[in-house]
Design a protein around this nucleic acid. Sequence first.
DNA 1: GTAAAAAGATAGTAATACTATCATAAAAAA
DNA 2: TTTTTTATGATAGTATTACTATCTTTTTAC
Lengths: 225, 225
Amino acid sequence: MKHQLQIKMNEALYLRDPESTVLGKNILKHSVHLIHKQGFEAFTFKKLAEDVGTTEAGIYRYFENKHKLLVYLTAWYWGWLEFQISFQTNNIKDPEVRLRRVVELLATTVKDDQQTSYINESLLHQIIIAEGSKAYLTKQVGEDNKLQFFKPYKDLCAVVGNIISECSPKYKYPKSLASTIIEMAHFQNFFMYNLPSLTDFGKTKKEAEIISFLNDLVFSSLKKK
Amino acid sequence: MKHQLQIKMNEALYLRDPESTVLGKNILKHSVHLIHKQGFEAFTFKKLAEDVGTTEAGIYRYFENKHKLLVYLTAWYWGWLEFQISFQTNNIKDPEVRLRRVVELLATTVKDDQQTSYINESLLHQIIIAEGSKAYLTKQVGEDNKLQFFKPYKDLCAVVGNIISECSPKYKYPKSLASTIIEMAHFQNFFMYNLPSLTDFGKTKKEAEIISFLNDLVFSSLKKK
DNA sequence: GTAAAAAGATAGTAATACTATCATAAAAAA
DNA sequence: TTTTTTATGATAGTATTACTATCTTTTTAC
């Protein structure tokens, strides 16, 4: 039997649940493709409506505006990633081995897993790299946070922070180190491809090197006494 | 005698040099205030024109669009910061002491220095924290990079990367570590105030703790053999 | 004092970001 | 099966944004 993965989303993110209808799923699917292709700034609901084969009003019935849609997609991604991590590190006893696996999962280009038919995780991963920070780098971050929009992101950071603390109970900055490696898994990737002189991987453009860098960063912090 | 600091800006960033006229300087001054107050998304040239006491067309004579203006302000900031760093670390021989000073300068809230009358560095610093990444997180990052828009940022990273290499010539990731601490000096600050559970400083909200975290991160990476 | 450059004033356009309304089709409840 | 509800389609309309164009007046430079 194939298991269908459903990620429980915050209801305040949408006007009508996009996962509950065909049109809604199409909106999600095409918005991933369109944001990936055009970038978030050039992305509009009108273009999206054309791609989906509906009207602008049709999109507005699901999402209040494109910012909410972006927050929805990022929340979905972090929820999905946390599941991947808990699944893939399940049964790993040694916290150090587990942490290495987590770093690897954070920094590895995602393959489209067929479990969720309407969202292409690989494209979504690239969207998160290039646009993800825009979900919270806004003036409404406080209100959005009160509405729990960033809970999946914060949950993932907490999970990673807890593994860090397991490895090294005396380490003083587990949460900040967790948010640092999560952000840097993405930023170093963006820099590598777009502003390569900001990294040491510009020549080879290998993700494996980002993973080595992050592991080195994490484990030198934790092993120092 | 008072020294007036002039930062040499890339000419492709503007249509008319804003530092060469009174109106231009007013545009810079008010855009810092307005972006700080409203956030970059809500910031428009029309509102800016009202604040400055000119018309929309007046602004467009200086800047093609608000994205270019943001890139201008970020470039100005990084140029200014690199000067601060070279000035404040001048004559420090020991690279480790110098690196600590750099980390401190990167993560410390800036005071408005009166050397540049029309730009409030303190507000600009907060703009860079909240909006700075939007300067390069776009689809045009490649073209913008070709036009050298990010040179001041890359130069600063190179300076920091070189100090890292001086401290520890064998360390394999000086550039990535440099971009990591520069980005994290800002992100941890943003998180501390807006999404505090992503950091270990949510309770105290002390910049000094961010500095300690970054120093710990850097020097455990460099001292590990 | 004259020429050139900058700024002010005003107008106009295409696109964006919505809101509203009414008819129809599909799904759920009676 | 019929009725009712709910979702979608089609169309229209508005305020704001992001510009471009033009013409006049003021300021600055030589």
